[in-house]
């Protein structure tokens, strides 16, 4: 199977300190890959580097055969990588509908946009109900759904989710897992999921990477890796 994304030995520095060091990671086409690890392990930084938000000092990021290092966020979004950031970063004073419209900023195919909107309203009926409501007035779970929905509106080939379960109730997290699965299965979108919630991460993912203190410490199929020491260490900072 071919990889849609190949990250090879990337290093990111914040000023003089190394945030992540020689990180390599592959996402196979149409699969869900998860990255786990304790706080400060560098998972979010990896995603930000991928989205072009922080500059990569070394290494290469190859997406469907094209080099992404040095490209602007706009170009990266246009190529089909969309990051749903930690903390959601919605537009709180705009309506749900306008938030979704903004997700499709770079698209011009009106019919496709309309179809995606219908898919989203199908997937998250709450958003359809509240489409005229301001995003800031939604509940936490609804806001996360909106953040993901806004990401889908860009019609991504690879959707990166940064800690979608943060601050959500267990029952909402379960729904979230089902939605992520649906997006992957029915839309064929490859997904790179950064998570602290092991149940969600291992519940949906096919393959897993574990990070600790800026470096990759373990990887493998979810079934095999979930019990290894490295993952336990990655989590508990051991």
């Amino acid at each position: 199977m071919s990889n849609i994304l190949e990250i090879k030995d990337i290093t990111v520095m914040y000023g003089k300190s190394v945030a992540i060091h020689d990180i390599s990671l592959n996402v196979p086409e149409g699969k869900i890959v998860t990255m786990v690890g304790a706080n400060g392990a560098g998972k979010s930084t990896t995603l930000k580097a991928l989205a072009g938000i922080v500059p990569v000092t070394q290494g290469s990021i190859c997406f469907r055969g094209e080099e992404l290092v040095g490209q602007s966020t706009q170009e990266i979004v246009r190529k089909g990588i969309v990051l749903v950031p930690e903390g959601r970063h919605l537009f709180p004073h705009l309506s749900v509908y306008k938030n979704l419209q903004l997700g499709a900023t770079l698209r011009t195919d009106k019919i496709g946009i309309q179809e995606d909107l219908e898919y989203i309203y199908d997937l998250f009926p709450k958003l359809k109900e509240r489409r005229k409501q301001k995003a800031g007035t939604l509940s936490g779970g609804e806001q996360q759904m909106l953040a993901i929905a806004r990401g889908i509106m860009a019609s991504p080939k690879l959707l990166c989710l940064d800690e979608p379960s943060l601050g959500l109730a267990p029952v909402v997290i379960e729904q979230l897992g089902q939605s992520i699965n649906d997006i992957n299965k029915t839309r064929g979108v490859s997904i790179l999921l950064v998570e602290q919630n092991v149940h969600l991460a291992f519940g949906v993912a096919d393959y897993c990477y574990a990070m600790s203190v800026g470096a990759m410490v373990a990887q493998g199929d979810v079934d095999c890796i979930s019990s290894t020491d490295a993952v336990r260490k990655a989590y508990f900072g051991g």
Binding site: I53, H89, F91, L94
Partner: peptide, 18 residues
């Protein structure tokens, strides 16, 4: 719309490709 997006959340706006 894009202008409002930028005033409300710069990072969010950048991630939409604005």
């Amino acid at each position: 719309r894009q202008m409002q997006a930028v005033s409300q959340d710069r990072l969010g706006a950048a991630l939409q490709g604005i």
